[in-house]
Design a protein around this nucleic acid. Structure first.
Length: 264
DNA sequence: AAAAGAGACAACCGCATGTAC
DNA sequence: CGTACATGCGGTTGTCTCTTT
């Protein structure tokens, strides 16, 4: 009574070994919130950042838990101090200030996107049929291969990708002083064209071409000098920075629909 | 104890795209 | 080149469980 499609889905979302079930951790939760703000409802892309979670799982968790949670927290904020919300406020924060802040957020989002969507050459590419959006900490393709080979024959491509992130995820966000101390170090940087794992053939042919072009536009470079290399801590910080969550409702989401047209 | 309601999550559906023949 | 089938994805629905009345 089951079609192949139904069986595949059952395997992918439920039976496949290595799937983590049960409660989401705080870290996972925050990561989902940030990534949702950045990527929208692209659950498969979001899932590639969460080890052992399926896109279906994340989608369900978002719909049943996080949506309500965010709504509640936003309502609470409004009641507590409505003037703090930039969307409803033009007095406490000047337009210029707000625009600068928004621009910073957009810049951060763009950097993250460039990182995430760089789909250039990588040895693990052949192992992935998923669209994967992950920076590869440490930039070691050798390390990537090691992880992939140890992930087991049943592991999906998404799993492979997700596990590559594990180390990155687990490394706790560094303090400002640590970041500044490390920011100049080559070991904490990674090339956006080398540090990304996995893509389909079509991705690497079309996707990377368009993004390479995007990277060289003057529009991007106006935000800073680092167009080719980005400190990992920037994205890491952004993902775990509570303050970016506070503005996601009006900042990043709006940016995606409006100003972000240039990104795609 | 039973009915009603709410929440959680697995499963289904439709669409787009990729691939083999 | 066309067709059938497989795959990936996001939105939605169905069903089970738990809580409340």
């Amino acid at each position: 009574m089951r079609c192949s499609k139904s069986c595949r889905l059952r395997w992918t979302n439920y039976l496949r070994p290595g799937i983590k079930r049960g409660n989401f951790t705080d870290q996972e939760e925050r990561l989902i919130i940030h990534l949702q703000a950045l990527l929208g409802n692209r659950w498969a892309a979001i899932a590639s950042y969460l080890p052992e979670r399926t896109d279906n799982d994340i989608k369900n968790y978002w719909n049943t838990h996080l949506k309500k949670k965010l709504k509640r927290s936003q309502m609470g904020e409004e009641e507590e101090s409505p003037s703090k919300r930039p969307s409803s406020n033009s007095q406490s924060m000047s337009k210029g200030q707000w625009e600068r802040r928004l621009q910073t957020d957009i810049h951060m989002a763009r950097q993250a996107l460039r990182e995430a969507l760089s789909l250039d050459s990588d040895p693990v590419k052949a192992n992935s049929s998923h669209h994967t959006y992950l920076p590869s900490p440490g930039t070691s393709s050798q390390a990537c291969q090691t992880v992939v080979s140890s992930s087991g024959i049943y592991a999906s491509n998404t799993d492979n990708i997700a596990r590559l992130l594990e180390g990155w995820m687990k490394s706790k966000p560094k303090s400002q002083s640590e970041q500044s101390a490390e920011s100049g170090s080559a070991s904490t940087r990674y090339s956006i064209n080398k540090g990304v794992v996995g893509s389909t053939e079509s991705d690497s042919s079309e996707g990377s071409a368009s993004f390479k072009q995007e990277l060289t536009t003057p529009e991007i470079s106006e935000f800073g000098s680092e167009t080719a290399q980005v400190p990992l801590s920037v994205i890491e910080n952004w993902l775990f920075d509570e303050s970016t969550v506070m503005v996601q409702g009006v900042g990043l989401v709006d940016m995606q629909l409006g100003d972000a047209s240039g990104l795609f």
